[in-house]
Every structure is written in C-alpha cells, then in structure tokens.
C-alpha cells in the first residue's frame, strides 16, 4: 500500500515535449511510472517517448483515462495548466515548475479545490511511491520500499531524509515533496491522515522550515488524530529574521514562523523533533524499535 499514487496510476505530463518535461518524463518511465501520454498545444497527434501527445488535457483524459497530471510548463503558464487539469477531471496535479506568480497560484488553487482536484507543489520534487511510481524529479534509486511515509517542504532534504531512513535498514512507502512557496497544494494537514490510514506506513517523517504556520497546524492535528510515531525536523533555526531563505515562503516575519515555535509545538504534540537533519535516520530507528 501507499498513498496518492501506485503502479497502476495513469499519468499524463503537461509540458510533455519541452526540455525538462522530456528529460524527467523519460526518467519516470524508466522508474516504472505508468505515463500514458502528454499535452503540448499544437503537437497533438504526435508521439513522444512512445506515448501519444494531445492538444488539450480534456482530450488526453478522455482518450487515456489518466487521473494524475505532472506539470512542467513554464512559470507564466502554471496557473492556466492547473485550471485546465481541474476542468478536465484530473484528480491530482503534481506541479514541479518553480517561480509561478503567487496571484496565479491563488486563483488556480481555489479553482482546483472547487473541482475537487488535489494539487502538490508548485516548486517541489513531486511524489514517489517507492519502487512503483515516481511523479517528479527526485532520484528514484534512493527510495527503497519500506514502512516510513515522508512529507517535506524541501527537495534535497527529502532525499537526505529518505536516504538516512534506508541506510538504517528501513524504507519508504510514499514520499511527498510539498514545496516551499507561500501557496501550496496538499500539506501536512491533508497528508498526515492519509499516512495514518495507510496500513503499510508505520512511522512518518515530516520536514518543515521557517515561514508560515503549516507545521503549527500539523502539530495540532497530530495531537488529535495521529497515533503513528512522527519524526520532525524544521530547517532554519539559524536563519536571520526578515530574509527569504531560498524558498519564497521561507521567511521569518517579525516573530512569526520561527523554527523554535514550530519545534516546540511539535514536541508538545508528542513528535520526536531532531535539531539536525543528520539525526533523522537515527530518530526513525528509535521510534520504530520502541
């Protein structure tokens, strides 16, 4: 079992024939992801990476029965691409593109919610169910199949965390990179209950960072609903106030969004919080051998 995606999930790629789309789609296909086609306007009818290309998402969904879309279109077109996917009945859009305007994401997310479409990202590594289905840009070989679910705002910390978990002899059910933009799709609040319900997931790693209050909301939810052990790391304990740390959303404004308040809230909710990401693997081992 896993959450969100598995080996049977039918996936299309928006921005299929572009440079990024082509490179990563072919990596996903090599991993075993069931990519059934792609969308690039004005290239409908062509074949790319052995799969059909469509002019519109609606056409792609109608022909292939795809339920998930991986979005690689340039930043200026992300909002449009997400809304098109929602309109066409896609169930989950995984938005990899970095640098989409916040205003566009506000509108796109609201529209996706209205149509019942889940979104992941933007500006994220994507989602992977180990050894079954990779929808995104993460290096697949790190993710060995196992019993730990992972949720992270950061791409490379996702790899770091998964690698440590696997080095300790455990593995990953599903890992979700949720992205660090000010407006994102699925976050801890929606994903934690999915892992709680997944019979194969026995522990959850959540990696957060400064800025916003998603981790605080997560702490509240963990206290009330999550029985499985959770290990957390919050990046940016040493980040200065008022500076954007790489991710558009990673900023401590005034006294809000600090690592300290997030770590304290999570600890109070019974989460095993590590001070350094170097200790994620060890902490997972500790909670799983209890």
């Amino acid at each position: 079992m896993s959450i969100l995606v598995n080996k049977d999930t039918k996936v299309i790629v928006q921005g299929f024939t572009g440079k990024e789309g082509t490179f990563h789609a072919s990596q996903c296909i090599d991993y075993g992801t069931n990519i059934v086609g792609g969308v690039t306007p004005n290239k409908g009818g062509q074949e790319h990476l052995g799969q059909p290309v469509f002019n519109t998402v609606a056409e792609a969904v109608k022909t292939t029965g795809a339920t998930v879309s991986m979005i690689f279109v340039p930043p200026a077109f992300v909002g449009d691409a997400v809304m098109e996917a929602a309109e066409a009945g896609i169930e989950l859009a995984v938005i990899i593109t970095e640098g989409a305007p916040v205003k566009d994401m506000q509108a796109a997310k609201a529209y996706a919610v209205k149509h019942g479409m889940k979104t992941i990202g933007p500006n994220c590594p994507g989602v992977i169910t180990a050894e079954e289905c990779k929808i995104g840009i993460m290096p697949g070989m790190i993710f060995k199949k196992g019993n730990v679910g992972l949720i992270s705002k950061s791409g490379t910390l996702t790899y770091e965390g998964a690698n440590q978990v696997c080095n300790e002899g455990y593995g990953i059910t599903t890992a979700v990179g949720i992205g660090g933009d000010p407006i994102i799709g699925l976050s801890y609040k929606q994903l934690l209950p999915m892992f709680e319900a997944d019979p194969d997931t026995e522990a959850i790693v959540m990696i957060g960072e400064i800025g916003g209050d998603l981790e605080i909301q997560a702490a509240k939810l963990i206290k009330e609903q999550i029985t499985k052990p959770v290990v957390a790391f919050i990046a940016g304990q040493t980040a200065p106030k008022g500076k954007t740390m790489g991710h558009a959303g990673a900023i401590v404004s005034g006294s809000a969004g600090t690592a300290k308040e997030k770590m304290e809230a999570l600890e109070a909710a019974g989460v095993k919080v590590v001070v350094s990401p170097a200790d994620i693997g060890k902490a997972v081992k500790e909670v799983l051998s209890k």
């Binding site: 960072e209 350094s276 990401p277």
Partner: peptide, 16 residues
C-alpha cells in the same frame, strides 16, 4: 549546499 532546505539544515547542523 544544493537546495534551500538542505542549506538551512546544514547551517543548523553546524550550529548544533
């Protein structure tokens, strides 16, 4: 460091 999260995590680890 590559990646904003890992870059912050590296600073935190040095501090730790």
């Amino acid at each position: 460091v590559n990646g904003a999260g890992l870059a912050m995590g590296t600073m935190d680890t040095i501090n730790y």
